[in-house]
């Protein structure tokens, strides 16, 4: 059972909650308590804006178990406005093609479809093309 893992990661998964280094001001995602830039302790929570752009992307046609209903889907490395590079699914592309440099925003979505009708629904961050307005 992976219930404890999903529960432990919910803040970062639902809302892109990371950390900020009090020494060099680097923004950390995922949170890891030690700043990768300066090696000092970094435990202050930091709420990322969710805005960023596509750094690179690929399409998955042969999905792992639990993701079949969404295939084919696009995975991207997203460069967040605050610095970190995050790997996540792109969603709501519609007829749009993913492009490097495309502005995207974070949304909370079902990560894994409930193929097991009795199991937990797992939610987390994905990115979609930024909506006008």
């Amino acid at each position: 059972m992976d219930i404890p893992r999903h529960w432990r990661l919910k803040k970062q998964r639902y809302a892109l909650m990371g950390e900020v280094c009090g020494h060099c001001d680097a923004k950390l995602f995922p949170p890891r308590d030690i700043c990768p830039e300066c090696g000092e302790e970094a435990k202050t929570l930091f709420q990322f804006s969710g805005r960023g752009e596509v750094y690179s992307h690929t399409t998955v046609y042969d999905p792992p178990q639990g993701y079949e209903s969404q295939a084919p889907y696009t995975l991207a490395m997203v460069k967040l406005e605050e610095g970190p590079l995050v790997t996540a699914q792109l969603t709501d592309l519609g007829e749009q093609e993913a492009e490097i440099g495309m502005p995207v925003e974070m949304v909370t979505r079902l990560l894994r479809s409930a193929t097991d009708e009795r199991g937990l629904l797992v939610y987390g961050y994905k990115f979609r093309p930024a909506v006008a307005g």
Partner: peptide, 9 residues
């Protein structure tokens, strides 16, 4: 709704 959307999201 897309396949990854429900009332929670």
């Amino acid at each position: 709704p897309g396949s990854d959307e429900d009332v929670a999201t």
